[in-house]
Amino acid sequence: MRTYGFKEVYYEKAREAGVMFIRYEEFDRPELIRQDGELKVSLRDPVLRDQLIIDTDLLILSVATVPEPNNANLAQMLKVPLNSDKFFLEAHVKLRPVDFATEGVFVAGLAHSPKFIAEAIAQAKAAAGRASTIISKKAIEAEGIIAAVNEDICDGCGICKPICEYKAIEIVATEEDKKKAEINEALCKGCGACVGACPSGAMEQKGFKDNQLMALIDAALEETTALSI
């Protein structure tokens, strides 16, 4: 038997008090049965490899902690992910345990997973600490990965404009009586959807330029002997 966290002491006390612990396999769960008008628990003990039927005077079931049903709505609103049990999922289990990938949103407590109060407090402190790294700053630097227009190539066709979800693109007239796309750098979130759509290759995403990604594709598909070992 392995206890959760530092709860070994409680396990020892319970054993001393005469409590019996019986394991079961996950695919072979205990069942409640009625036998001769009485409530009994039937389970297969994997150690004894035998079926046990336990008489009951009083049966107490430990209640599960279920996630808040509204989590899905909140998750969509804040653009943060849920795990398969519908609890909130942190950006990285080890490296960013109270952050979300979305900037400025943090997680603590039961929203994250069932846990003891001491853990919830520790996590809340961590989240508060992370949040203060943002609010202690006078100004926040905007993302560097945003779209940029190469004005020499852009024809102002306007395909990019309806694609932008943030209304960051305007088609403006240039001095030479031509049209071109203009990007509002504060509004642009840097998804690159307009870059993927630009037919003339005038739109670029900083950090994810066409030629950079092409170089990645080339490298990934290069014939190497290393692949076949």
């Binding site: 840097g190 690159g192 959807a193 993927g196 990645l216 598909l221």
Partner: peptide, 25 residues
């Protein structure tokens, strides 16, 4: 498989896919 990260799946230019196929993917 070899993986290429983009910020959003919307960034995947059709040209990337076609050129990947043309290069033998």
């Amino acid at each position: 498989f070899r993986m290429i990260k983009v910020m959003c799946s919307g960034r995947v230019d059709p040209e990337f896919i076609l050129s990947a196929f043309s290069k033998g993917a």
